[in-house]
Design a protein around this nucleic acid. Structure first.
Length: 237
DNA sequence: CTAAGGATTTGCT
DNA sequence: GCAAATCCTTAGA
């Protein structure tokens, strides 16, 4: 890292950027560590889009039947999951959407970013969402009034708002000037809810039921609450 | 609030 | 060919 002061802050944005060592954690640990951190996307016009990561999922590879890298399978698509920790894995899903992951320690493991709380340059995110809706022939009338907390409330929504496409696949984020993660300038404390992952029922009950989804309790930008797990994780609230 | 069905590209069998 | 780590719309409780 260049140009950091004693507190790890860089000159221009006063926030420490994630380097290789920050990403080099076991998958479930990284999924939780990323909560409260800031995803940054430098848009084509030079603006910095920023959002706080509020919801993640761990995909372990190997035994994890829900993972694209189940059983150590390597394909053209999932190869970034085997790249060094901090490598982006962006793939297309359901024909029209994208999901973004970050590889972690361990072969074939990665963290899915499921939701962000918009932080800086929200207007640009809204513009990206509307442009994306138009290209998909969605009703632009209603999309013109998307609530701020709904902009990045889901894995594909955040990709639309941040203009994350396959161009940003397989990028080593510690060395990227387009897409990276940084520490918040003012860290906050929060309760983490652990619960089963979303949309993976067909892989079998054993892996579908594991608590590999993590989110910040009470945050309005989380895509789907699990109230049963909230009782266990935040009983006093 | 929950539920169901359609949109539509991509990767893999 | 088929199923997919989703989203949006509409219908109904």
């Amino acid at each position: 890292m260049l140009n950091q002061d004693a507190h790890g802050r860089t000159e221009d944005n006063c926030a420490r950027k994630f380097e290789s060592a920050d990403f080099d954690e076991e998958c479930t640990a990284l999924a939780q560590y990323l909560l409260g951190k800031v995803l940054v996307r430098k848009s084509s016009d030079g603006q910095l889009l920023k959002g706080v990561i509020v919801e993640t999922e761990a995909y372990l590879g190997g035994e994890d039947k829900a993972s694209h890298s189940y059983n150590g399978k390597i394909t053209a698509r999932n190869r970034p999951m085997y790249e060094p920790p901090g490598t982006s894995y962006v793939y297309a899903i359901y024909g029209m959407y994208h999901c973004m992951n970050i590889s972690s320690r361990g072969a074939g493991s990665a963290v899915l970013i499921r939701a962000l709380e918009p932080m800086e340059n929200v207007e640009s995110m809204l513009k990206n969402r509307m442009a994306s809706a138009r290209s998909k022939n969605k009703s632009s009338e209603k999309n013109a009034r998307i609530r701020e907390e709904d902009l990045c409330r889901g894995p594909s929504k955040l990709c639309m708002s941040f203009d994350i496409t396959k161009k940003l696949n397989n990028i080593f984020m510690p060395a990227s000037a387009e897409l990276w993660v940084e520490h918040p300038v003012l860290p906050s404390s929060f309760v983490i809810v652990q619960c089963p992952r979303i949309g993976i029922d067909k892989c079998g009950a054993e892996w579908a039921s594991k608590n590999l989804r993590f989110y910040i309790f009470g945050n309005e930008c989380v895509s789907k609450r699990d109230k049963n797990c909230e009782k266990l994780c935040a009983p006093s609230i």
